[in-house]
Nucleic acid binder design. Structure first.
Lengths: 244, 244
DNA sequence: GCCGATTTGTCCGTATGTATC
DNA sequence: CGATACATACGGACAAATCGG
């Protein structure tokens, strides 16, 4: 993006991550930032709003803006709010291999509609994949995608990355993902494909995904083997949205 | 709050939840809302920004603002981004009993500092509690709180609610919580207090909490028995922050 | 394919309110 | 009490995407 606020946002983010503005310290005041970046009050605040939303800063009325970014390295692959699974693995230097185990078109039945929220009669593409990290099968996903959105995607496309196919070939981007995460006894079907080492339970995640048109286009269900994968997020209390 | 944008935000939220603006439909245009609420462009947009952040709407450039709120009832207690655990149970009509099983002050050792990020030598209050829902122990939590923040909190205060004590007696509010959620083999310590019914794994959650001063004041670790508890969140892609 | 109307997106300048020190 | 710093709100201008004629 070439927006002014976006440049400022990324620059301040860089300065925080570099340690120039350290954990629990205060940022320069808004007026200082306005002078530094030669822009208006509102534009600085818009940049700060994004940083606040990402858990980098907390504004303190009458005092200043405090840094709460803390550099941390995880021992698991963390599925966070930012990049795709592929990147999370790459960052940790792990070798990721994705294998498609089923790939078929179905029409939504009343039962399937109940689960996925898609309308009865709509055509879906259902893709099941196993993720192998450094030789172990740790992540099983089943995606239900609107056929009208995915077009003529092939299993090879899915093996690489569904989202990058959709963005590259269909000009579609993800806007919002609603996730639910829980621990659950593992179904036999999942056990068949994953390396569970005797565990009974896995983390299960349900995603409902909307694109930038606001169209609900994907329901997915994933199982993660214990110990390997985590999910992170950041909660901002309602009272703390003042920047926006 | 008595802010104009906050009233508008709550009113539109109510109208969405009531079904007046339904899932996948478009809101009235910004200009219409400006007329309806007799306020400025920016004030309407600020209200919409909050709704976007909460996963209620997606703005579509040149077209309108689409509703993605979907009413849903869960079969588990869902720990979401909004209220405390207590409320989540109350909403489902479940009887919640909290029992304090340990309550002691400790000084941060190098090892504890490594885990919690608190400075060595700082004094903490460590509280362990078990949550019983409808007769079953399903949720075990261990909170590490800055002693300087909690003051002279008693086990009775903790049995009710730590956060409402902190707000009521110490005038402190939570601003940001950073969570990590994973599935893990259950430690014997946790098994001792929870009703696991033979399961080996539980969902484990780590929270790091900052107050409205931006002060890091709490590290906590929780174990949830499978089947009973889930965690939800909403991811907004960076490209979709235009409202802010 | 172009034009104009509609709708969202970006940015500015200013004024005022409120909390902190 | 005054200076500083964040918070709210307004009004205006222009850019960019969409849609219908």
């Amino acid at each position: 993006m070439k927006a002014v606020y976006d440049k400022i946002y990324r620059d301040i983010k860089r300065r925080i991550e570099s340690g120039e503005f350290a954990w629990q310290e205060f940022l320069p005041s808004e007026n200082t930032l306005i002078a530094e970046y030669s822009c208006s009050h509102n534009t600085v605040r818009k940049a700060l709003a994004i940083l606040a939303r990402e858990g980098y800063i907390v504004p303190v009325h009458g005092k200043g803006v405090r840094v709460i970014y803390y550099p941390r390295s995880q021992d698991r692959v963390v599925i966070d709010s930012l990049g795709p699974f592929k990147n999370a693995c790459a960052e940790k230097g792990l070798k990721l291999v994705t294998k498609v185990i089923s790939f078929e078109r179905v029409v939504v039945t009343p039962e399937l509609s109940e689960i996925t929220d898609f309308d009865e009669g709509e055509e879906l593409l259902v893709v099941e994949r196993v993720r192998n990290i450094d030789g172990r099968n740790v992540y099983l996903t089943k995606n239900y995608l609107l056929a009208s959105i995915v077009g003529d995607m092939t299993p090879e496309d899915a093996e690489d990355s569904i989202y990058s196919y959709l963005e590259r070939e269909r000009g579609m981007k993800v806007a919002v993902t609603k996730r639910i995460f829980m621990s659950e006894p593992v179904a036999d079907h999942a056990r068949e494909y994953l390396d569970f080492e005797g565990f009974q339970c896995a983390a299960m995640m349900v995603n409902r995904v909307y694109n930038t048109e606001g169209t609900y286009f994907e329901y997915s269900k994933s199982w993660c083997s214990p110990r390997d994968i985590a999910m992170s997020d950041i909660i901002i209390r309602n009272g703390n949205l003042s920047f926006m």
